[in-house]
Design a protein around this nucleic acid. Sequence first.
DNA 1: AAGCTAGTCAACCGCGTTGTA
DNA 2: GTACAACGCGGTTGACTAGCT
Length: 253
Amino acid sequence: MSWEMMAQQLGWGIIDEGWRKGPWIAEEDHKLIEYVKLHGEGRWNSVCRIAGLKRNGKSCRLRWVNYLRPDLKKGQLTPQEEKIIVELHARWGNRWSTIARSLPGRTDNEIKNYWRTHFKKKTKSSENFSRARLLRKQQFQQQQQLHQQQLQLQNQFDMRKIVSSSDESLNRQPPMPLVKQNIVPAYPFSANQEHDGFLCSLINNGYPSVPEVSNEANIWDALWNLDDVHGASNTSMAMSNKPNLPTYSAPFY
DNA sequence: AAGCTAGTCAACCGCGTTGTA
DNA sequence: GTACAACGCGGTTGACTAGCT
């Protein structure tokens, strides 16, 4: 008896519009592996035609990426990996695929499931929560410092230009070095001025739920709490990388 | 032993993005 | 410029399992 027949007898593999659904059987896995060996990854929609699988492209891709890929690590995540996940989640939020790229052999699905079961429930009270918050705070301070430095440099340069236009002698001095700083984004917004703008306006102009601008701790509490206030309703924004609106799930997101 | 509950994880779904004709 | 298909991503669901009562 083939795997397929057995699965059908057990009630697996519902056929929906010609596509099989539900758990994969060994025979299907084998066909998919053979297909990828021959044709490589991609062109998932042609798998059914070429490999004779009654699965749609999406399903094939998912099965390969999350389960069949030979470079996948099996077994529990190590404490080291766990630590990385916590830190990267503090930085990137729910960008599971981005986080997964830093953990070779782990899939976004795996990390997402792991996060949901291990961290989500204890987020508020846990040490990890405080850690993540501290990390964000540090990143923010670093960013602010960098920004200040840049502003200072810019001011110095501007002043020099003003003075030099009126004082010929200054022109003999070596020009202001062009500081090409290798700024590693401490948070994704840094690549997008709109988001920096959002954060700055939040801090400078206040936000309905941000109580005291002068009280740093309060700001951080308010920012963090936006996660709960807005997070759920903005999941779609978190998903897409649209720059038009920030996701409040994390201040540095 | 049986029933219930919570945890885990594979798979599905919907939507946004990207590539191409 | 537009329409369509393929791909990729994050959220959610549901089957299975282990532990508890």
